[in-house]
Design a protein around this nucleic acid. Structure first.
Lengths: 110, 110
DNA sequence: CTTATCTACAACCATTTGGTTGTACAATAA
DNA sequence: TTATTGTACAACCAAATGGTTGTAGATAAG
């Protein structure tokens, strides 16, 4: 089978990135507006370094990008990761609907 | 704020459950057909107990259900978890589109 | 120049995760 | 009845995760 190992680890990272409420909140915020890493850090009851790590996780998952501006690092939402995650769940939804259709057919035949 | 702690841990579990390729594969399989836990275990290069744990993770995330049939435990796909995950990502997509629309407005004004 | 701010990164720690083996028990098959 | 099969669960282990503090380097402000 081999199932495309690269894409699999990409998806691992994506969903892992979503699996934390602080990171989900960061994604929402940086999609709406502009935040530096320290600007984000000010929002949560944890250290700067902890937030920095969360941002790094999101970056590896293509859910945010960072861009240096002066001494600050501006974090912005990246549509790429979100799209990929949605695509996978849509795939699952499709499989589900096919199954539902098959079951309807069986009932109609019966 | 308080952001509904219950729903947040629910989402933590959901995305954590998706963050493993074996578990994603199990979800696909049990959505299409019927599998016992040992039937699933036969598919992967890991112990029965490991697969059993994966199924437990999926069950806690409302992505599968188990039903006892004789001495077997039948695993089936559960649409509930999938729907919730999709709903969250759709929310994010919506936020993204609003942002895009805002940016278009600004360009139109300017 | 000196000080304050923003970031990066290492080292450390506790807990969780993803795997293992082993034991026990219920249900089926011989 | 006895053996086999399917499951559950505990105990254990290595690695990853989510947090901390501390140090150091750029950049901006006084």
């Amino acid at each position: 089978m081999v199932v495309d190992k690269l894409r699999e680890t990409e998806l691992d990272r994506l969903f892992q990135a979503f699996a934390d409420s602080t990171r989900r909140d960061i994604v929402r915020r940086v999609t709406v507006g502009e935040f530096s890493v320290s600007g984000l850090a000010a929002l949560y009851a944890m250290s700067f370094a902890a937030v920095q790590k969360h941002v790094a996780v999101l970056e590896r998952a293509s859910l945010v990008t960072k861009e240096k501006r002066g001494r600050e690092q501006i974090v912005r939402g990246d549509h790429d990761g979100l799209q990929k995650a949605r695509r996978l769940l849509d795939e699952y939804e499709h499989i589900w609907r096919q199954r539902a259709a098959r079951m309807a057919d069986i009932l109609a035949e019966g």
